[in-house]
Design a protein around this nucleic acid. Structure first.
Length: 769
DNA sequence: CTTCCCCGGCTATAGACAGCATGTC
DNA sequence: CTATAGCCGGGGAAG
């Protein structure tokens, strides 16, 4: 089908696509048009990665815009939000305005009003619905990207409920759900009252297979030889082999340590074929990586990158990750070993993909658990760069003949599992029932159950226990589906009980949220977190920072640090030493599990305390065995939760509000109490604030009236920086012409860390990304 | 006596959204 | 219930 033959989309669209080199639609795209995406019909597109899903979404969104409507594009990750924004900004010259909403990224609800296309994470959309953002009532088209993630136990229910709410608010809403190939696309379509495009078609052929010994066994029955040297690991042989064809390799492994280890080893393979120019660029890149952070992780990554390899996992900072992603996409980096971060994240196609580990440790299962077919297919789907490679290759590795057969059966020839709603679980019910009541979607038990009827869970229980003929789509419940529905009702009842007991809802006659409940819902807190915080704050007039850090760290909204061997003893001691600081009782040591959790929270809290005591990033990383990305993540979450705690305390008129605020400021900037004022100045972070303070400039007011020579000295002679800082502080004359640094103000360089090397990056960049 | 290598035993284990109010080098 | 890589220390063989 030719792009010009699509009716409903703006007239410029076909020409625009042609400029991009797109003449005709891919088969699944043509199917989507047949199904009426461009005419406002809802659609579930279950197609492989890189087979043109985005264009299907654009057909829906732009035709909605053409009809004078607005569209919302829901993504699962912040990083994808910016990727999509960049893609859609290509439409701005044609008068289509784009807005983005994620937790950290610009834009208030108001600001988005009037945008034609809005990109947001599912949680942000949920939050905006809860807060009554005006444009939410006025949507014509919603795209849900990676909709198979409704299967995720933590975040899936949010997506499910959010889609249900949006459809309820906008009865004629067009839903375009983009999914990986899953086992039950039809069921998803049934849930969303949508047409279905279910296709395995790919623009680039994907050959999947298993390496065993000296051979690659492909799923189509073909074989190829792979020479594996005697001292060589299979992954190295594959990377070498791919490199010989000038291709890149993406290796998926099951732990961070393995990712780093593999990258280190593979660097010796990847550095072989580098030319002069590449070496130079890689050296620059390595320098850039070292500039991001001063940690061991950062140094290790830089060392790999110099040789054309890299690792990628959540312990890397977001800057590290995007540097690696970009350089890999530009084919400068030849091989990346990654944890699943890269499978679901931004687009990083590769000539070859190796799924090295197909089992992953799981605490709950008590051992190694095989990855799901869907997950492995998602990883393998990264193989083949559109427009670059004739085909992509994805390989699993077998160590025995039996394993070869097993892998072919289990993954290569297998269909992905069906996606299954995880809505009927306590933690998500807690959050979503409160939000549903608080934002007025339901005011009774019956209304809640009625609302939940719009979810995938309802579709599945309705069908699940029912007859197999799948014709029961008229909404009437099959009497035989009792078990699942009873289960749902039971969870709804116990959750309402919980919310009532904690004073978040009122059940006199109708069900409504209390003021407290409204606040909790608005703050986007798990009600259990709110209850924990309120409980801890009660009666604590002047809690210590540690007390507050621990309080928010033991909340279910904080992902705790892992206790390693030896930690148990160490933190048990800390617990007794600082007993008086903790808010609420310390669980008994005999309550194994609770005590363990409490200690993990203590470890997290102590990391936050170290951060807020200006301990260097590299020392924190070493002391807690984490990477810069983890530090950043914990600090971020703590800042959010302390903000929420502050709001809750304010709501109840508690006197500890200023104490919480101070703790939050300290975590936010990573500074001691005395630096909070200075660190609030734009351009001044934890490092500079300390230097200025040591030079005698202790407050923002001091800075405003400071001797320029002293400021320049404290900022180690960086003229431009000093000017910016003075200007931000409101100094009457920030010009540094002719000023020379005051020698007594120059900070002693006796501290640890790399010497100033002229890159000027002496701030721990917390404000980024 | 020192150095190197191999082996057994032990340890540790993926990811990442959100409030609010403005801005890092 | 399940695995595996990296690291450490001990012991044996080689130098």
């Amino acid at each position: 089908m030719d792009v010009a033959d699509v009716s409903g989309v703006p007239p410029w669209f076909a020409a625009h696509l042609r400029e991009e080199g797109i003449e005709s639609l891919y088969p699944p795209q043509a199917d989507a048009v047949e199904a009426g995406v461009a005419e406002g019909n809802s659609l579930v597109a279950s197609v492989p990665t890189a087979s043109g899903k985005t264009l299907i979404a654009q057909l829906g969104m732009l035709s909605a815009v053409e009809r004078g409507g607005t569209a919302l594009y829901i993504v699962p990750l912040r990083a994808l939000a910016s990727e999509k924004r960049e893609e859609f900004e290509a439409f701005e010259p044609y008068g289509v305005s784009i807005g983005v909403a994620t937790g950290n990224y610009e834009d208030t609800g108001e600001w988005l009003t009037g945008k034609d296309v809005i990109v947001a994470t599912s949680e942000k959309v949920d939050s905006l619905v809860r807060n009554g953002a005006p444009w939410v009532d006025d949507l014509d088209c919603v795209v849900s990207d990676e909709v198979h993630l409704v299967d995720d136990p933590n975040r899936g229910p949010t997506l499910e409920v959010t889609l249900a709410k949006l459809r309820r608010i906008n009865p004629n809403l067009q839903v375009v759900a983009l999914s990986a190939t899953v086992g039950n696309a039809g069921e998803m379509a049934e849930w969303l009252d949508a047409e279905l495009v279910d296709s395995a078609w790919r623009p680039i052929e994907l050959k999947t297979g298993v390496q065993y010994g000296q051979a690659l066994h492909f799923g189509d029955g073909s074989q190829r030889e792979l020479r594996v040297g005697s001292n060589e690991k299979p992954t190295e042989a594959i990377v070498r082999d791919t490199l010989a064809e000038d291709g890149s390799t993406l290796v998926f492994v099951n732990s961070r340590r393995n990712a780093e280890g593999a990258a280190k080893r593979l660097a010796n393979t990847s550095c072989d074929g580098l030319d002069e120019d590449e070496r130079r660029q890689l050296t620059d890149l390595a320098e850039e990586i070292r500039g991001v952070s001063d940690t061991e992780t950062s140094e290790d990554l830089a060392a790999c990158v110099e040789k054309g390899a890299a690792f990628h996992h959540a312990g890397c900072s977001s800057e590290h990750r995007s540097i690696v992603e970009d350089a890999f996409r530009d084919r400068l980096i030849k091989v990346v070993s990654a944890t699943p971060t890269l499978a679901a994240g931004v687009n990083t196609p590769s000539r070859r993909v190796v799924v090295r580990d197909w089992r992953r440790y799981s605490g709950e299962a008590g051992g190694m658990k095989p990855l799901s077919v869907l997950e492995v297919h998602q990883m393998m789907g990264r193989a083949g760069r559109p427009g670059r490679d004739p085909y992509g290759e994805a390989l699993l590795l077998a160590k025995s003949h039996d394993e070869l057969d097993e892998l072919l059966d289990r993954y290569v020839w297998a269909d992905p599992e069906p996606v299954e709603s995880k809505l009927a679980r306590e933690p998500s019910m807690r959050t979503h029932l409160l939000a549903t009541v608080a934002s007025g979607f339901a005011d009774s038990r019956a209304a809640l159950l009625n609302f939940l009827d719009r979810t995938l869970y309802a579709t599945q229980y309705r069908r699940g226990a029912g007859s197999d003929d799948e014709t029961d789509t008229d909404g009437r419940r099959d009497p035989r589906d009792g078990a699942a529905r009873d289960n749902l009702e039971r969870i709804v009842d116990s959750t309402l009980e919980y919310l009532d007991a904690n004073d978040f809802i009122d059940r006199d006659g109708t069900i409504g949220a209390t003021n407290l409940g409204h606040t909790v819902s608005r703050l986007y807190l798990d009600p259990m977190s709110a209850a924990e915080v309120l409980d801890g704050l009660e009666g604590a007039s002047t809690p210590t920072a540690m007390g507050l850090y621990h309080l928010v760290s033991r909340t279910p909204d904080m992902y705790e640090l892992y206790l390693r061997s030896g930690d148990r003893e160490e933190y048990t001691m800390v617990a007794y030493e600082r007993e008086s600081e903790f808010l609420g009782a310390i669980p008994s040591e005999f309550e194994e599990e609770r005590f363990e959790d409490w200690l993990s929270a203590l470890k997290t809290a102590r990391m936050l305390e170290d951060w807020a005591s200006e301990l260097d990033e590299d020392e924190i990383a070493e002391r807690y065995g984490v990477g810069p990305g983890d530090i950043r993540g914990k600090v971020d979450t703590a800042e959010w939760l302390l903000g929420a705690a502050e709001s809750l305390a304010g709501e109840l008129g508690l006197e500890c509000v200023p104490t919480i605020r101070e703790a939050r400021q300290r975590v936010k900037h990573g500074v001691g109490e005395e630096l909070i004022d200075l660190a609030g100045v734009r351009g001044v972070g934890r490092k500079r604030a300390r230097r200025l303070y040591d030079a005698g400039i202790e407050t923002r007011a001091d800075l405003r009236e400071a001797d320029k020579a002293v400021v320049l000295g404290a900022l180690r002679g960086r003229t431009k920086t000093a000017e910016n800082v003075l200007e931000a502080a409101g100094h009457p004359d920030s010009g540094m012409d002719g000023v020379s640094p005051d020698a007594t103000a120059i900070p002693g360089d006796g501290e640890r860390g790399r010497a100033a090397d002229g890159t000027g990056d002496d701030q721990s960049n917390l404000g980024d990304f």
